[in-house]
């Protein structure tokens, strides 16, 4: 499989990249690690006139702590996020999600920013990004803006990033109880993509759930927060009964389940409830 021809540019600054993107308009694609874009180019699902490789722009792959927020450069690879001691300590949900993506070779090349913009409905990151209420920073020629995780995923393969913008950073507040978290998925056995994946970040005070954010990927064309489950948990003592009844609501936000060769919509709906319960138990250590 060989992509159709394109012009290739590897700018070394965001400004130069934005100039090129504006010059080509709709007829260019942004390349970071390439593990979403190159397969698309090879299948000729996209045949842009130009590919703008932002992989050589320095400073876009750092992982740092800025007061109470963790800042992750858009070009940080899944492998570097999985291996980060700081994330392992302060936000293990990010590290554990990264570790479950693809395989070692894919994790060595694929990037957080690239995966998010691609907005594959079966990707792993959206669940964690929603459960951590992350903020996604994008740069355009008009300046910088921040998109809340809740507003980021628009539809299948469509994010809120507009033509002419580049994702530069993903930031999350350090969770009050980093370890009260989990990401559990049923992986499609050939590709490793999530048939359904549920990420949970909890806050528990004396056995009572005082905070809960739950992201679901794989189930619907667009990943979502399981707000009904969150609301059922909040203010109540975490018990097995509460987890079961709350998890049974985890599919209620999404009307349309995806229905494809990997799983029927009905099966995905069932999985979403089961996996939500498992993820809640793991996060709450119940």
């Amino acid at each position: 499989m060989i992509p159709s021809n394109f012009e290739y540019h590897a700018p070394t600054s965001i400004e130069a990249a934005l100039d090129l993107i504006n010059q080509y308009g709709d007829d260019c694609k942004i390349l970071s690690g390439g593990h979403s874009l190159i397969p698309v180019l090879k299948l000729r699902l996209a045949a842009p006139a130009a590919v703008i490789d932002i992989g050589r722009i320095p400073g876009l792959s750092s992982i740092s702590l800025d007061r109470d927020r963790l800042r992750i450069g858009a070009l940080a690879t899944h492998a570097s996020i999985a291996a980060s001691d700081m994330l392992g300590q302060l936000c293990p949900l990010l590290a554990t999600t990264a570790h479950q993506i693809g395989d070692p070779q894919v994790r060595n090349r694929g990037t957080l920013g690239g995966s998010l913009v691609h907005a594959d409905p079966a990707a792993d990151w959206p669940a964690a990004i929603l459960a951590l209420d992350a903020s996604i920073t994008v740069r355009g020629s008009a300046g910088e803006r921040h998109i809340a995780a809740n507003d980021f995923f628009v539809d299948m393969l469509t994010s809120a990033v507009q033509q002419g913008e580049i994702v530069t950073e993903i930031s999350v507040a350090v969770p009050a109880q980093p370890r009260a978290s989990s990401y559990i998925k049923v992986a499609q056995s050939a590709s490793g993509f999530a048939v359904v994946g549920v990420a949970v970040q909890l806050e528990i005070d004396n056995g009572v759930c005082v905070g809960a954010r739950i992201g679901v990927t794989g189930f619907a064309p667009k990943p979502y927060r399981a707000s009904s489950t969150e609301n059922a948990l909040k203010g109540n003592p975490i018990t097995e009964d509460l987890i079961s009844s709350a998890a049974a609501l985890a599919d209620s936000e999404a009307a349309d389940a995806m229905n494809d060769i990997h799983a029927s919509g009905e099966y995905r709906r069932h999985l979403t409830r089961v996996i939500a319960a498992r993820a809640l138990r793991a996060a709450a250590r119940v």
Partner: peptide, 11 residues
Amino acid sequence: AIKSCTVLAVQ
């Protein structure tokens, strides 16, 4: 380790 079918030579 990387998969060289999913990396452009120019990268």
